[in-house]
Amino acid sequence: MRLTPELSDELRAGVAHQVGACATDGTPHIVRALGVVQEDDGRLSILLSALANPELLQAVRDTARVALIVCRATTLRTVLYKGADAQVREAEDARYRAALGQRGSAFWADIEQLGFDRTKLAGWYDVPPGVLARICFTPNGAWNSTPGPGSGMPVELLP
């Protein structure tokens, strides 16, 4: 399945990301991700530092299952995606580095409207060479997770 144009636009608009996975022993893992790139075939690549939570990456390798939640800080518009064919791959290609920079700039622009000081959080996007990884997956479902009534309702994806 693929994202609608509206959902694709949201991913570039400066959102926060959290990724979840579950190890084979049932341990849940979570870590902040830094951006999402939509591949030409509709798959999503979640960009993150490989140092941040190696156990989560291992859980994805072992189970191929992943959950991704994205939230725009200024509106709290939130969408949850899930996939069951996830793979962990390197992301040192210039294309991903460029996307990381764009997603970081958009994210700072959004949260600065709330009074956040980007200098205090600049380390989030300061991923050293050689450790930028991506979790690539096909979204098999999406759900509205904006706070309030209607949270949990499915969001339409394209076939």
């Binding site: 959290q18 990724v19 979840g20 996975a21 579950c22 084979t24 049932g26 849940p28 893992h29 979570i30 902040r32 189970t63 299952r65 992943v66 959950a67 991704l68 939640i69 939230c71 939130t78 949850l80 899930k82 997770s145 706070p147």
Partner: peptide, 20 residues
């Protein structure tokens, strides 16, 4: 910065939500 919570179903499907 709102915290986020990861859980999984009994058959290992992960889930993530933000907390107030």
């Amino acid at each position: 910065i709102p915290p986020a919570l990861a859980t999984a179903s009994a058959d290992g499907v992960p889930h993530v939500s933000y907390l107030s």
